[in-house]
Design a protein around this nucleic acid. Sequence first.
DNA 1: GAATACTATGAATTATACTAATCTTCCGCG
DNA 2: CGCGGAAGATTAGTATAATTCATAGTATTC
Lengths: 300, 300
Amino acid sequence: MALNLYQLKAFFTVAQTRNFTEASKRLYLTQSAVSHAVNKLGKSAGDELFNKTSKGLELTEAGRILYKACETVFFEIEKAEEHLAAVKNKNLGLIRLGATVEFGTTLLVKYLKVFIEKNPRIHIDFQFRHELLKPLLNEELDVIIDCTEHDSGELLKTPLFREEYAVIASPGYLRKHRIRQPADLAGHNILSMDKEGKWWGNFLNALPAAGRPELSPVTEMNHIRAMINAAIEDLGVGFVPRYCVMKELKAKTLAEVFPRLKLFEGNFYIYQKAKRAGLERHRSLVEYLKNIKSTHLERA
Amino acid sequence: MALNLYQLKAFFTVAQTRNFTEASKRLYLTQSAVSHAVNKLGKSAGDELFNKTSKGLELTEAGRILYKACETVFFEIEKAEEHLAAVKNKNLGLIRLGATVEFGTTLLVKYLKVFIEKNPRIHIDFQFRHELLKPLLNEELDVIIDCTEHDSGELLKTPLFREEYAVIASPGYLRKHRIRQPADLAGHNILSMDKEGKWWGNFLNALPAAGRPELSPVTEMNHIRAMINAAIEDLGVGFVPRYCVMKELKAKTLAEVFPRLKLFEGNFYIYQKAKRAGLERHRSLVEYLKNIKSTHLERA
DNA sequence: GAATACTATGAATTATACTAATCTTCCGCG
DNA sequence: CGCGGAAGATTAGTATAATTCATAGTATTC
């Protein structure tokens, strides 16, 4: 039978992307090459590897068997390459690190400055996007930092820190309108990621049922940064992760409306694909991030 | 870098055999092809893979790294192939089963008759030799049955049964010379695998220190079968694993000299290479052999 | 110091991976 | 219904890599 690495690689990438054309791009090959490779592999495996359904490709049983083998085979090869590089003092490889746009651009880059300096032989590609899980699972990304909860046997989850929120407004806005307690928010212009006010849900939940204000009017903004800028421009009161506005709070272009209210919303986690966790470079990055946690919490 | 399966296979086989020429034979390639492949692999790994010493090849550090990767990679591929074959109702592969000549030819073949009938899709190659461990370690054999003790992290050891010995002579010989207790052996012609009588050591050890006879004269035979035939031909008294002479005892061409003495010598074990244990076909063979144990003990 | 047993090398050959162009199939949509 | 577009398959030719053949090199042994 003699399985073949080129073919397995092509198959594996197609299986991950569920798309021959996309896979061919990742492999820097033509779609034709990938098609040939997968077909040959199918022949030597004695079976079709994919079923073509109306909504795309799906693995057959033979395909699933090969997929599992590919996971360990390619991981093992990658590990060996990293290990060889370490022995030869070569570059230790690439980490494609995913994070949300806000977190990535504000804090992550800053946090990783030291790591990058200390580990010149590890290369990091930053990928700031909103969709993180899918790219992780299809191995477009190696490590992601996300504040949504994912639980799956496929994932290795490392808690990072709790995300703290803050109600913010410009100092000028606050001088004009005295807001001393949550109930005072009624009638103020509310800046939210949605019209329905779900975005503010966690703020309301943190209050006793009696003292919850009626939030209206609501101005919708589909981007955190827009909300922040709107608040700076005196447009109203926003509700944002505190890390997003650390700089503004310090520069006093924004102020916290209820500085003594602690508002937590979920946790930040580092996620890795379980089958691929174990590369030395991933381990050292995760270790570094875990240690930085305390520093962050002090400032927050 | 992009490691390559052909090259890895060549390298892996050379590493196992410590010999390019031998490896090329196993791979059904020329020595030149193997040499080319290993050199290319060395180049893409950025380092030599073997050191040539006075007594052969030895792996460099880079070589050891790659060797480890190869172990899992090729095992994973083999497992996938077996699994695919199972799904497709194809042959489930080959087990190269090693055993000592005596045990293999007398008992093993008989024992495995049922297994072979029940598992027509598993092919077994019997290899009866005296040297078993080395071929197992360099993967010339998949499973061996051996009565010597080996302990190594590389090996998976499954106890099979205890080997029972018997003192034998032809019925005619026993009629002529009355031998009722071990002390009576003094002066009889002793058939042994060695001149020094180490072969009989376990017999002597089973006796109280007082009643140990002087064993001489000793006739040396370098083969169990020769010893058995010599005993049949009235040449003297032999000391052999009982399973070797079950047939002769039944046919009454040989008789036990001390039928009530139980003489154990070591255990039979099934050995597998730990890194390669886990193939379904190996598992089912080992399982089958373990179950047959009781049957054997009843008869013994 | 010849004989033996290995491994390395370079050019030639063979196999196979890859591409470009073309074709088929399957949807969605006016 | 038919047209256009998207995605994969097919075919034939090219490029690349694997393998061989022939030969040379290098220890080791007697």
